[in-house]
């Protein structure tokens, strides 16, 4: 057999191994976890530290953190991207900002956690709370929203802008009514991906949002999101079935997020083609 045939065999095998890994990881979690998922599991409060009952407060915890993070990171990220894409030409400042955002995107989540703990929890005195956790993860997803929005804005054809400007609209009116509308699907995709990242985040949140298992009533309450609940259930051996159930809910969340973004982009490219 010649080296070409061997190489082709190796490539085929690598593709299949990758597919097999995916099927095993996802399949194992879903097969063992789906049986656990029920209305009671999703809407019940945990009892005995999570050994019994459901995961309702942790779902609320995850949603609360996602909402706070998006409310903070979306306007800043989108605004920054508008500045980079619409209001400035390639210059030193934009280069520095892009390099900074790239750096920020590469920082490990545990370092965001350290920072959030020292700055939001202790220095600003927010304590272990939804607010501290949400602000910390907002910093994490900021570069992501910035980059996806900037790319979406760049994809808008220049003729749209010129058409609007030539009708007498100001720069901001053009941006608001023409450019942002055309780029909406791309921006929305970035925001959903940011939400997905927050929903799965654990390390940064465990240092900033605390571990409370009750339902939060204010932004200053501590919460435990699903991801951290899964960690505690599994590491302390409290309940493996409930850990599988929580893991399955997390995987399904990612599945929903991925298919939503795919659908949006497919619809969007079709609309662009006319």
């Amino acid at each position: 057999m010649n080296s070409g045939k061997i190489a082709m065999g190796v490539f085929w095998a690598s593709g299949l191994i990758t597919l097999a890994i995916l099927v095993i990881v996802i399949g194992h979690i879903l097969l063992n976890g789906m049986g656990m998922i029920s209305i009671e599991f999703l809407l019940d409060s945990p009892r005995a530290l999570g050994r019994e009952g459901g995961i309702f407060p942790t779902i609320i915890g995850t949603i609360a953190l996602v909402v706070v993070a998006l409310v903070i990171a979306t306007p800043i990220g989108v605004g920054g991207a508008i500045y980079l894409a619409e209001y400035t030409h390639r210059g030193t400042i934009t280069k520095i900002i892009r390099a900074g955002a790239e750096c920020l995107a590469g920082i490990p989540s545990i370092l965001f956690g350290l920072f959030g703990f020292a700055f939001f929890v202790i220095f600003l005195g927010f304590g272990w709370s939804i607010l501290s956790g949400g602000l910390t993860v907002a910093c994490m997803i900021l570069p992501m929203i910035l980059r996806t929005t900037e790319e979406a804005l760049k994809a808008v054809p220049n003729s749209y802008r010129e058409g609007s400007l030539s009708l007498g609209a100001t720069k901001w009116q053009t941006t608001q009514n023409v450019v942002l509308k055309s780029a909406a699907a791309g921006i929305f995709t970035g925001i959903i991906l940011g939400a997905g990242k927050v929903a799965g985040e654990t390390a940064a949140i465990m240092l900033t949002a605390g571990t409370a298992l009750r339902l939060p009533t204010s932004l200053f309450d501590s919460v435990r999101p699903m991801s951290f609940h899964l960690y505690i259930l599994a590491m302390e051996g409290l309940s493996m079935e409930r850990a599988y159930g929580t893991a399955a809910v997390l995987v399904i969340t990612v599945l929903i997020i991925n298919s939503t973004t795919t659908l949006i982009m497919r619809y969007y490219t079709r609309a662009l083609r006319g």
């Binding site: 799965g200 654990t202 390390a203 960690y231 599994a234 997390l250 995987v251 990612v254």
Partner: peptide, 12 residues
């Protein structure tokens, strides 16, 4: 999908 799965699920 593998990219989006939370690290805590891999750990689990």
């Amino acid at each position: 999908l593998l990219l989006g799965i939370p690290s805590v699920v891999y750990g689990f």
